[in-house]
Computed example of a mutant assay.
Amino acid sequence: MSANEFICELQSFSSERVFNPYRNVCPNCDLSDAAVTRSRNLVSVLEAVHASGVDTIWVARDLGYRGGRRTGVPLTDEVHLNSVERLLGTGSLARATQGDVVAERTAAVIWKLLGRIGSPVMLWNVFPFHPHDEGKPMTNRCHTAKERELTLPFLWYLIEFLRPKQLVAIGRDAQAALEDSPIPVINVRHPSYGGQREFSETLAQFYGIDMPSAPKQETMSFFV
């Protein structure tokens, strides 16, 4: 299966209380061709990481309404689309939304650390769509066990496609999804609810880089 064929499979998924950024268009935030733009963004990422032989996948839980829902790129908000281009060599990635650029705190933590590491990785989610509360599209909820069962094959296809040597499970939901993986997994705390420093320090140690000293972090609640 090619990157384009993989995107077609993602586009075919539809479910209640779920926004599929590769299929759906938000009437309030999106440009008219938003789903096409996000699909192209993800194809560019997949083709770039495959061509460069990226050997590590970082896996988190779901797409967030301020991040991957808008960009089509997991764990990436609009602020960091240029960071994707520089790190992965994708060429230009396009915005799919109108109005002001929207930032996501989780994406900021992820990309700040990736900038220090300097090594390209593939970013993904156990549930590669945006689950939201009933009637509240701009909220984040955790995917259900049934939703995970339906979409986990996407993760295993991605692993087969890229053949990574290392997986990074970000948060307990990702850890649970990868517990039977035949590929080595490093489990890290999700950088939310006060976990930012522990997340960064664990991965800095794993990649052998120094982290600058930081002031005590206040507990913040953002996308998990």
Rank of each mutant, 00 (worst) to 15 (best):
M122C: 15
G89P: 12
R197N: 11
K136N: 12
R148K: 14
S52W: 11
F222A: 06
E160I: 03
I209L: 04
L158K: 03
S213P: 11
T151Q: 02
I7A: 08
S44I: 13
V188F: 04
A177V: 04
T139R: 08
Q217Y: 05
G67H: 06
T139I: 15
H132W: 04
L178A: 00
L75S: 01
R38S: 00
L178S: 03
V168K: 00
L162F: 05
E78F: 02
A103Q: 08
V84L: 05
L150A: 08
L203M: 04
A108C: 10
S119L: 15
H80W: 09
I183A: 00
R17P: 03
G99I: 07
N140R: 06
V185D: 10
F161E: 12
V36T: 07
V73S: 08
S12K: 15
F154K: 15
E149D: 15
W111N: 04
A176W: 00
Y157T: 10
F161D: 09
L150F: 06
N125H: 06
V73Q: 04
T106V: 15
K112W: 14
F129H: 02
S15H: 08
S181H: 13
R172C: 00
Q175P: 05
A51H: 11
A176C: 02
T219V: 12
L46I: 13
P137T: 02
I117H: 00
K216C: 14
G53S: 10
W156D: 11
V45D: 05
A35V: 04
W111Q: 08
P153M: 10
V79W: 09
V168I: 15
K146G: 10
G171S: 01
G89Y: 13
L63I: 10
D133Q: 09
A176Y: 00
P153G: 02
V109I: 14
C29W: 08
C29D: 13
S12L: 13
T37R: 15
H190W: 14
V168Q: 00
P131V: 06
L178Q: 00
S14N: 12
R40W: 09
R141L: 12
G135N: 03
R40F: 03
R148F: 09
V109M: 09
T37A: 07
V188R: 05
T151D: 01
L114V: 14
Q166I: 14
L178Y: 01
G208F: 14
D77K: 01
L113D: 05
V36D: 05
E104M: 02
Y22P: 09
A145N: 06
R23P: 02
E149P: 11
L93Q: 15
M1E: 07
F223W: 13
R70E: 01
E218Q: 05
Y207T: 06
V101I: 12
C8N: 12
G67K: 11
K112I: 07
G171F: 04
E179L: 12
H130S: 03
L113P: 04
I170R: 06
S200Y: 08
R66Y: 10
S200A: 14
G68V: 14
F222R: 14
H132L: 01
D210I: 11
V54L: 10
L93N: 05
N140K: 07
E85H: 07
I7K: 07
R163K: 06
T37I: 13
K165T: 11
D33F: 05
V18C: 00
G91E: 15
F13K: 06
F19G: 05
V84K: 00
N140M: 04
T76S: 04
D55N: 09
C26P: 05
